[in-house]
Design a binder for these strands. Structure first.
Lengths: 204, 204
DNA sequence: TTGAAAAATAAACACTGTTCAGTAAATTTG
DNA sequence: CAAATTTACTGAACAGTGTTTATTTTTCAA
């Protein structure tokens, strides 16, 4: 039946409209202003309609998060594609930190906010992040194969690099670096220096 | 005037009652359930009364945060007091990670949540964290003086160690480690291994 | 064209942080 | 001691939130 197909398409199209509106609201005006009512306003539907396409706000934010991750993977592919694995690892780290600086709201949704993770149930996988994490893991694996880094365990290496990057970015986004009396510029420099320093210590 | 003094004491006492109730609510039932109304209920006052002692919820949470930091500093003093600076640094890291595991709600308020930091205004210092950060910085400084670690810049060293610890703890608290298909036990082990691994790489 | 199925909504519910007019208690003054 | 004033407190409301449900509108097959 062609009608069934069209209805399927319509459903997906509506979900896309909702995601786009939410994403726009989210990045332009921040999470606080991305309420269901305002999203509904933006796409010119009633708030209740959104609940015909998403069971709750968390489920919707999970889809917005997926969109954010696809943007991050695009950036990785564009900015972190050196043939040499360790060079690529350096590029990944810089791109990651830069992404956190340029898109704090998205970074928040992807790595800090509680809400969208309610949608990833117990003993279930967080698929949104799979590709981005795989991109890092693959690079670390190549570094290990070629004996370029000190780690001998893939997951341990990937987790450590990620934790360092995330630690720096999230402390900054959530204003915790205020404990060190630095200017904004000095803070930025410190983050970059910390990443560079870390990379040089794990280099073999 | 003795009456003025008593009134001053009463005011502080009331603030303490509010903080304690908030802290209790916060740690026992989580942030979501720590509303002004429920805190007011707990101390048997009307919600409006809380606004006579705190200008808004952020200001109240900032005071609760201070309480959390004093607990962390206590733990540092108790669990991280080895005479040898590098041993002490290791103890600090372990205590920090353990604190994040045992008191996820407090950790959230201290290092992840946005809200209480609204109370630290532009170009102002985040005094709540001063002592805890100084404890780490002092240890790093001693490590540097004795040539025990690879860092040659105090702030860079402290930031790096903190970022690694915070990265691991916060990724875990906010469920982002689900991207690696590990059991809860394996995740815990990975965090510990990452910290130990990091400490061994910065050791000179 | 009619009747069933699907889609959309208005209105409500139960919350939230916050403000403000008005009440009750404590203290100062005449 | 009584009256006036200051201080402490609260009930009720405002403006917002996510979400549900009964009702209406639209779509589409028979």
């Amino acid at each position: 039946m062609g009608i069934q197909d069209r209805k399927e398409r319509d459903k997906l199209e509506m979900r896309k409209r909702i995601i786009d509106a939410a994403m726009h609201m989210f990045t332009k005006e921040g999470y606080e202003h991305a309420s269901i009512r305002k999203i509904a306003d933006k796409i010119e539907y009633s708030p209740a309609t959104i609940y015909l396409y998403y069971k709750d706000k968390d489920e919707l934010l999970y889809d917005v998060q997926a969109e954010c991750f696809s943007k991050l993977v695009d950036i990785f592919k564009r900015e972190a594609n050196a043939p040499h694995p360790f060079t690529r690892l350096e590029q990944i780290c810089r791109s990651y930190v830069q992404f956190g600086k340029n898109h704090a709201e998205m970074y928040d949704l992807m790595f800090i906010m509680k809400s969208p993770m309610n949608n990833v149930h117990e003993h279930e996988n967080w698929q949104n992040a799979d590709d981005a994490f795989a991109y890092l893991a693959k690079t670390i694996a190549e570094c290990m194969e070629q004996g370029l880094i000190k780690y001998d365990n893939l997951y341990l290496g990937a987790l450590s690099v990620w934790a360092m990057g995330h630690g720096l970015v999230s402390l900054n986004i959530r204003c915790r670096m205020k404990v060190m009396d630095m200017t904004e510029e000095q803070t930025d420099d410190a983050i970059n220096a910390a990443i560079e320093g870390y990379l040089s210590t794990i280099k073999k």
